[in-house]
Amino acid sequence: MARPLLDRRTFLASGLALSASSALAASRPFRIGAIADCQYADQDDNGARMYRRAPGKLRAAVDYFNTLDLDHVVHLGDFIDKGWASFDAQQPAIDALRHPWRFVLGNHDFAVDDDKKALVAARLDMPARYYSFETHGWVFLALDGNDLSEYGWPAGSPQLALSQRLHRERFPGAPDWDGGIGETQLKWIDATLTDAGRRGLKAALYCHFPIFPANPHNLWNAAEVTDLVVRQRAAKVWINGHNHDGNYGETAGLHCVNLKGMLDTEETAYAVVDFEADHLRMTGFGRQPNLRLKLRR
């Protein structure tokens, strides 16, 4: 399959001044496609969760995206519901897209055998479980909200032991189908956003899990993550999935957009997002609503 335009955790982040041609490109509006929670599995429907229809809905969205001029298309986690073979069923839609894919990992993406958990990111051609990339004067941070989790690491691993201890001691009562962002990743987020601000870039953060408003689907350490992100003025928007009902909130000028899930609807749910100089315009399809978001300075 076509490889994305990524080969390491952070690319084009050298801190060098933009060339004249890059500066010109940075001033131009651009568009992306966005999908959350396609969540395929070869299993019967469960209430509103229509598992076997997922590949068809995904392919229809890809066919539409292919008619547009897009910088990339992001899938915001839970590409599958469970089972390593489910990735294979989604592969035709991955291959059909003529734009770069950017993937974020969700909790269901780790619903595979323990010996496959370390392979999930590579299966989706991701450079790492979290990474960044730049385009048109923006830096995008694709985060791993499963960094701390009860499901994202194999049994007996130090990562799982740490996650279980922190869940018990710091986040008692938090759902075990949510996750958190660990210290190393938090420091990376802070450093990446600091660098973006120093270089005059705007920043968008992709994650499977929401951070705001308060909701049972939020990251275990949503308050800590929110405090970090809002104090970094380069950060303009947080875009996520996980809560299939969708949501929206604004805190200290940071827009927090929860896309509706593609899985559990008779129609579909996805969006095209236009990045303009001072605002974002989200055009929703199916049950995804439209939004216009003015960017904080």
Results as ranks from 00 to 15, higher is better:
Gln232Trp: 03
Ala203His: 07
Asp190Arg: 14
Asp190Ser: 08
Ala204Trp: 00
Arg233Val: 07
Leu228Asp: 00
Lys187Gly: 14
Leu205Ser: 06
Ala234Arg: 05
Ala196Gly: 11
Ala204Gln: 00
Val230Tyr: 07
Ala214Pro: 08
Leu201Met: 13
Ala191Leu: 10
Ala223Val: 13
Arg199Ala: 14
Gly197Met: 12
Gln185Met: 00
Val230Leu: 02
Asn215Gln: 11
Arg198Ser: 15
Tyr206Gln: 06
Ala223Asn: 08
Leu186Asn: 03
Ala191Phe: 08
Thr194His: 12
Asp190Gly: 15
Trp220Gln: 02
Glu224Gly: 04
Ala234Asn: 10
Asp195Asn: 15
Leu219Ala: 05
Thr184Pro: 01
Asp190Ile: 02
Pro213Leu: 04
Ile211Thr: 07
Ala203Ile: 06
Val225Gln: 00
Arg233Trp: 10
Asn218Gln: 11
Thr194Ala: 12
Leu228Ala: 04
Asp190Phe: 02
Glu183Val: 09
Ile211Phe: 07
Thr226Asp: 00
Asn215Val: 05
Ala234Lys: 07
Trp188Cys: 06
Gly200Lys: 13
Leu193His: 11
Ala214Asn: 12
Glu224Asp: 14
Thr192Trp: 02
Val229Pro: 06
Gln232Glu: 10
Asn218Ile: 00
Glu183Lys: 09
Ala222Ile: 08
Gly182Pro: 01
Ala203Gln: 13
Asn218Met: 01
Ala191Tyr: 08
His208Gly: 04
Gly182His: 00
Ala223Arg: 14
Gln232Cys: 09
Gln185Ser: 05
Val230Lys: 12
Pro210Arg: 11
His217Ile: 05
Val230His: 04
Leu228Ile: 12
Glu183Gln: 11
Phe209Met: 14
Lys202Trp: 11
Ala204His: 02
Phe209Asp: 01
Leu186Ile: 03
Asn218His: 08
Ile189Ala: 05
Trp220Met: 03
Thr184Ser: 11
Gln185Lys: 04
Ala234Phe: 03
Gly182Cys: 03
Leu228Asn: 02
Asn215Asp: 15
Ala234Trp: 07
Arg233Thr: 14
Ala204Leu: 10
Pro213Ile: 08
Tyr206Asp: 01
Ala191Trp: 04
Pro216Glu: 08
Asp227Val: 01
Tyr206Leu: 14
Thr226Lys: 12
Arg231Tyr: 02
Glu183Leu: 13
Val230Trp: 05
Leu186Ser: 12
His217Arg: 14
Ala196Cys: 03
Gln185Val: 04
Leu201Arg: 13
Thr184Asn: 10
Pro216His: 14
Pro213Asp: 06
Arg233Leu: 14
Ala191Thr: 12
Leu186Trp: 03
Ala223His: 15
Val230Pro: 03
Ile211Arg: 07
Pro210Phe: 09
Ala223Asp: 13
Tyr206Trp: 13
Leu193Arg: 03
Gln232Asp: 07
